[in-house]
């Protein structure tokens, strides 16, 4: 189904630049990984700059893809199919990490972020399940709500991904430190204080929660505008609510006696598993309104 976009679309629609940007993610991954064992700051700084360059390249690719899709008469921003959403996900978590890194000394987080981003980007670039051609969008998606719905949700997902990485670091550090008499290794000494990690997890989760809440509400408003029901308990909607409940639980767990940072770290980890299921699993397991496939049936919605 490649009649609108010609054979050179791979260049014009920016997909090639996303594929190239994979190099700018994999190299920092290697750098950050070695950094975990050597603690060489030059390595982490170099990784950071390569990653930031990759982010710029991806920004360029997005602009290209967006203008191209309008150019070929598809008046929808490029956020609708699985390919787009995967590269956007990678983009958001890299951007999130770059921002967090400016404020906190979290180089130890780099390897998890770059690994996740590389996985999403690699899957998008090479899996036949996620073709990069820009397809005309079905009527239900032709709405100005689309872009706000997706951007808010992906900012939230990016934040939860970062919190997930921090949650793991928290547990590792907490475990090692609670063993008395054991010398802390190089890896642990690179991590910030455990209380600082806890604070960062909280702040990043609540940042994500604000966007998640807004994204779900925009989705409901969109559904109301498109087919007259703001909520229909469709599996994707329900899973987004489950995600929301998980993070509301996170926020309140702090007020319950005896729920310390360890449990919070666990909720941040489980929460991200729920996010991933909501984002990818639902489509693979349960088809519904939001599945990334084109609908073949007559029923429009």
């Amino acid at each position: 189904m490649n009649t609108i976009a010609g054979s050179n679309a791979y260049f014009l629609d920016g997909a090639i630049f996303f594929t190239i940007s994979l190099v700018f993610v994999v190299l920092p991954f290697i750098g950050y990984f070695i950094f975990l064992f050597t603690g060489d700051k030059r390595l982490s700084r170099a990784s950071f700059f390569v990653l930031a360059a990759g982010l710029l390249l991806q920004t360029f690719a997005f602009v290209l893809r967006w203008t191209y899709s309008y150019h070929i008469g598809i008046h929808t921003p490029p956020f609708v199919d699985l390919y787009d959403s995967l590269v956007f996900f990678a983009y958001v978590i890299i951007a999130g990490f770059v921002l967090v890194r400016i404020f906190y000394d979290f180089d130890a987080l780099g390897f998890i972020i770059t690994l996740t981003a590389a996985a999403a980007l690699g899957f998008a670039s090479f899996s036949p399940l996620a073709p990069s051609t820009i397809e005309p969008t079905m009527p239900a998606l032709q709405s100005s709500y689309l872009i706000y719905h997706i951007i808010t949700l992906f900012i939230a997902y990016g934040a939860f991904g970062t919190a997930f990485g921090l949650g793991i670091l928290y547990l590792i550090k907490n475990r090692k430190e609670s063993v008395p008499g054991k010398k802390t290794g190089r890896f642990l000494s690179l991590l910030p204080e455990i209380s600082v990690i806890e604070e960062a997890i909280y702040k990043i989760v609540v940042f994500g929660l604000v966007f998640l809440t807004a994204g779900i509400i925009i989705g409901a408003a969109w559904a109301d505008n498109a087919w007259g029901g703001y909520w229909s308990w469709d599996p994707k909607e329900t899973w987004s609510l489950i995600t929301w409940i998980t993070y509301i639980l996170f926020v309140h767990a702090r007020f319950a006696r005896g729920w310390g940072g360890k449990r919070l770290a666990w909720i941040a980890i489980i929460g991200f598993a729920v996010v991933i299921f909501c984002y990818l699993g639902v489509d693979l397991v349960i088809p519904g309104l939001h599945s990334y496939a084109t609908p073949g049936s007559k029923q429009i919605l």
Partner: peptide, 26 residues
């Protein structure tokens, strides 16, 4: 007024919702 009750209720509602997505509703 206990937050523990809230935690219990939130977990229960989330679990039931999971069941609701595994079996087609209505």
């Amino acid at each position: 007024s206990s937050v523990k009750l809230a935690i219990f209720l939130l977990i229960a509602l989330a679990s039931l919702s999971v069941v609701g997505t595994l079996i087609n509703q209505g």
